[in-house]
Write a protein that binds this DNA or RNA. Structure first.
Lengths: 153, 153
DNA sequence: GCTGAAACTAAACACTT
DNA sequence: AAGTGTTTAGTTTCAGC
């Protein structure tokens, strides 16, 4: 499932991740090609799974999501059963925007977006009642300096 | 610039953040309305800045971005001048996908997406040569359990 | 594998109720 | 504030080069 990408493919991806509402004509012009070949490349990239879902970025604060926490989790339970339960829990909870299993002494990191500190506490209480964790540190974001999903192509 | 949103607005936003490639007709049907009113609402939400850029999600691994680090930064320099320099640095570096200023003893957290460990080291060396930091801890992601930008509307 | 055009589909906005 | 209709624009496919 390896995909060979040339410079034109990369330029197309770069344009799409910057602004996916552009028309084929616009993209074609920017990458120095024309409609049909660009369309064929996009279709190929979509089929290969390189291009995923198309989304819009929403303003969290305008929608009342004023609190963002990074949660560092240490666990003493490293069995498969515990892990499956934990994975399911974080995947199901919509306030968890990111979850990564880490190397090193911290086992997991979560990014949690909620309305306020109270809502975070509710989330936290619900989580620890579902799965046992050894140690939890919550880092509260005071300011979002940068936030993008764009890859540095 | 406050925005009052009713349930229909929220449903529209929810649909858009899930799949922005849907046609107006599809969205209208799902939210129990029709084209024109939905279009007017979307336009209003865009003008208000609630709806931001339209993007595509790209598969990091398919594009050779195999390493993801969360970087915890402590600084002893809390002057405005240092901060400006730091903010500029992280905003300019495309490998930094997220940057937050934190409350507590860790001052900043970054999410850094790079090709491999070597590329991270290059980034790290470049960063500390630009701005002085007191203490840096890099957490290496072994597995992306979940990654979304969707807000839990 | 590109160009250009045809056929189709949706977006945008004015006008009507 | 919602529905209808028209204009314009964009997508998708395909024939010809």
């Amino acid at each position: 499932m390896s995909v060979r990408l040339d410079q034109v493919d990369r330029k197309i991806l770069s344009e799409l991740q910057e602004d996916a509402s552009q028309s084929l004509d616009e993209i074609a012009k920017k990458v120095g090609s024309s409609k049909t070949p660009v369309w064929n490349r996009i279709r190929k990239l979509r089929d290969a799974g390189v291009i995923g879902a198309q989304t819009v970025r929403l303003d969290p604060e305008a929608l009342g999501f004023d609190a963002c926490f990074f949660v560092l989790i240490r666990t003493s339970a490293h069995e498969k059963e515990w892990q499956d339960k934990f994975l399911t829990a974080v995947r199901e909870r919509p306030e968890v925007q990111e979850a990564h299993r880490l190397a090193g002494d911290i086992d997991y990191i979560l990014k949690v977006r909620v309305e306020n500190a109270r809502a975070y506490d509710k989330f936290y209480q619900a989580l620890i009642s579902e799965v046992r964790v050894h140690n939890v540190t919550a880092l509260l974001s005071m300011e979002e300096i940068k936030s993008t999903t764009a890859l540095p192509l």
